[in-house]
């Protein structure tokens, strides 16, 4: 067993004890679930930012599509939990299939602009089409049962479900970035022109990366909606995309576990500080962005890994 595998198992075991430790570390199980789901969305940003070199400022659109997809399928079809999650994810993927060809048109900062602008379309749709989406108020619903009516998801059960989904997601993410496909994405990040000269259609790879990213974000959104028993248009807003990118960079973009580290700090920090002061949280969050970008551009995990590597070599 490699060192990485052991570390992975250790982290998962630690996470599994959260509900037991909850009274001692004062992190509510619901907040812990939210952090894990947030990390899945941050991973989706990481795939584009850290591995493909594209600034993803529209991933909230996919996150929100997942949430609204789940909520709408609960409202109109009264489906159970897993079906709602799958339908939500499917809607996000559909969104990526539609937006992808436009997003592909540009790279670098222009991609950032395009993703912000196109992402906002869904915000306005959710905001304006009040009859279907509930407009500014969003939609409230009660949490559906999982598969069979007797399986009700209370908060602790939901946490373990979130943990299982998270572990599956991070294993899938690891497999993707280590596959030849993932290596090609990294090559595109480093030098797209060279990738093209090698005869690879880089647009096709970027397109698939966007769709995979949307699937992660959509899954996260669908589950987050059902965790809170509500969805709202702010889930689609570009500020939400910014939060995903920040968590990714805070933890370490281009690392597999970075988004989890960033997400835990972000979600738990938000919960603690915003219980005292709402504007205070916004100011601290802004300062966090500034400090992180100027002092920790590699993020916490990225910096730690670099120090570790430097020590080993020398």
């Amino acid at each position: 067993m490699t060192r990485g595998r052991i570390a992975t198992i250790a982290v998962v075991v630690l996470l599994a004890f959260e509900p037991v430790l909850s009274p001692f570390i004062h992190v509510d199980v619901t907040i812990a679930s939210a952090a894990l789901l947030f990390a899945i969305a941050a991973m989706s940003a990481n795939l584009l930012l850290g591995y493909t070199g594209l600034p993803p400022f529209g991933n909230a659109a996919f996150f929100g599509l997942g949430a609204y997809g789940a909520a709408l399928s609960l409202k109109y079809w009264h489906v159970e939990f897993a079906t709602a999650a799958v339908l939500g994810t499917a809607l996000a993927v559909l969104g990526a299939l539609v937006l992808g060809p436009f997003l592909l048109r540009r790279r670098g900062i222009y991609f950032g602009l395009l993703s912000i602008a196109f992402g906002q379309v869904f915000y306005f749709i959710a905001y304006r089409f009040t009859d279907v989406t509930g407009g500014e108020d969003g939609m409230n619903f009660s949490r559906p049962f999982l598969l069979v009516p007797s399986l009700r998801l209370r908060e602790t059960a939901f946490y373990y479900l979130a943990l299982v989904v998270f572990v599956a997601a991070i294993l899938a993410f690891e497999a993707i970035v280590r596959s030849p496909f993932g290596k090609t994405l990294i090559a595109i990040k480093q030098n797209e022109l060279r990738v093209r000269y090698l005869g690879l259609d880089s647009n096709r790879f970027v397109f698939v990366a966007i769709v995979i990213s949307a699937a992660f974000a959509g899954l996260s959104g669908a589950l987050t909606g059902m965790l809170n028993n509500s969805v709202g248009p702010l889930m689609l807003d570009w500020h939400q995309s910014g939060d995903f990118v920040l968590s990714t960079i805070l933890g370490g973009s281009g690392t597999i576990w970075g988004p989890l580290v960033g997400s835990i700090i972000f979600v738990v920090g938000r919960d603690i500080i915003s219980s005292y002061t709402q504007e205070g949280w916004q100011i601290i969050l802004g300062a966090l962005f500034v400090a992180c970008v100027i002092f920790f551009p590699r993020g916490i995990l990225g910096t730690a890994l670099q120090l570790f590597a430097a020590k080993r070599h020398g």
Binding site: P55, F57, G112, G242, Q282, G286, A287, F289
Partner: peptide, 19 residues
């Protein structure tokens, strides 16, 4: 990378809004 200045100015806008 331009993503950093984008994030920085995003952070500044959050601080400004909070104030």
């Amino acid at each position: 990378d331009p993503v950093y200045s984008l994030l920085l100015t995003f952070g500044l806008s959050l601080i400004a809004e909070g104030i």
